[in-house]
Simulated scan of single mutants.
Amino acid sequence: MPEVMMGFPRAYAEFTNPDDETEVYRIDLTWLTSRWECIFGNGCPGIYADRPHDGCCTLGAHFADEDDEKRVRKAVKQLTPELWQYYKEGKKRGWVELEDEETLTRGEEPDRKTRRVDDACIFLNRPGFPAGEGCALHHLAVKQGRHFHETKPDVCWQLPIRRQFREVERTDGTSYTEVSIGEYSRDGWGPGGHDLDWYCTANTDAHHGKEPVYVNNKPELVALMGARGYELLKQYCEEFESRRGTLLRHPADPPR
């Protein structure tokens, strides 16, 4: 099925962060109540047509900050050859690389990211690997009975939820930090998003989940906004769903 075009109407709700009165959450009700669900290994064709088994792991993961990389490093130390296909490669030559040379020519500080080996992220187990294809760090979390947000890079466990920060000044001269919680849509990848052959968040093939995003992705949302913030988000989503409107629902969802 075709991907729905960006720019469709959305519904939002705003509320003060119960743990920090200087922050205001702006949540995308249309996305959070959608029936999107990750279909990696279940029909996902990958973001590039010539890499159908990679999902969105082809490019490697950029670390958000030092804490992000530190958490992943701790998880990597717990990986074994049985869980990680590129264990020897990672141990011998490392699993972190700097972003491409273009950033250096622009005079910018290059980002640190997971290495690409054989044209995809070094942590991606390829089809046929005994422990299973997909992220080795994800497999580690499952084996240890943890949620994968404790082992994977921030961008990987958050996707396709996107958290953004913006400073807002009121007309009375006061200000607050707006924290938006919404869809990591194709444009979230920057200009390169236009080059993706396939992307899931607005594709009808990935909108057949039994539960809405705010329920199915509760652990990620709690990690992003805290337990009390999530409870308020849940209330707003439930109220929005109770109206059963159609104008502001996600257009990639099946009819209800």
Rank of each mutant, 00 (worst) to 15 (best):
V179C: 10
G94Q: 12
M5K: 15
Y48F: 15
A131L: 05
N17R: 03
W157G: 02
V155I: 15
N203P: 02
I181Y: 06
E14I: 00
L196H: 09
T16A: 13
V179G: 03
F148L: 11
K91R: 15
L29E: 01
T201N: 05
K210N: 08
D100T: 08
G245F: 03
S34N: 07
D111A: 13
G190T: 10
R71Q: 14
D119C: 03
D119Y: 10
R256E: 14
E82R: 15
Q78I: 00
G132M: 05
H147W: 10
E66Q: 12
N42F: 01
P2V: 11
R115C: 09
W157P: 07
C237M: 01
D119T: 11
F15H: 06
H207Q: 09
G134V: 04
K210Y: 01
V76S: 06
L248P: 05
G7M: 08
A202K: 13
R93A: 15
K152T: 14
A141Q: 06
L159M: 14
V24L: 11
A136M: 02
G245Y: 01
N216V: 01
W95Q: 05
E239P: 00
I181E: 08
A227P: 01
C200G: 12
G43F: 08
A13M: 05
Q164M: 14
L159A: 14
D154K: 12
C38M: 04
L248A: 02
F40C: 07
E82W: 04
A75I: 06
K77Q: 14
C56L: 04
L221C: 03
A131V: 07
L221K: 03
R243K: 15
R71M: 14
R228P: 01
R35C: 08
D119E: 15
Q144G: 00
L137A: 06
P251F: 07
Q85D: 09
P153T: 12
T105P: 00
V213Q: 01
T171D: 15
E178M: 13
M1Y: 13
R126T: 13
R166G: 05
L224P: 03
R162P: 00
G94I: 14
F165L: 15
G188P: 03
H62I: 09
T201E: 06
P219D: 08
E211H: 07
K91W: 12
L247Q: 09
R93W: 14
G134L: 04
E178Q: 15
T80D: 11
D197T: 04
W84T: 04
T105D: 08
R51S: 14
T80I: 12
K234W: 07
M5T: 14
E82M: 11
F63I: 04
E241I: 08
G193V: 11
L59Y: 07
D253G: 07
E133V: 00
R244A: 14
L59R: 12
V213E: 04
M1N: 13
V117T: 09
R126C: 01
W84K: 06
E89I: 15
R71W: 00
C38F: 06
P255G: 02
G46A: 11
L98S: 12
S34W: 10
Y48T: 05
G229F: 01
Y236F: 13
D19K: 10
A131Q: 02
F8R: 05
L224N: 06
P219K: 05
T201M: 10
A61Q: 04
P18M: 04
S175K: 15
A11W: 00
A252P: 02
G182M: 09
L59I: 01
R73N: 07
E3G: 05
Y214P: 03
L159K: 01
P127C: 04
E183S: 13
D253L: 03
Q235R: 14
V72E: 09
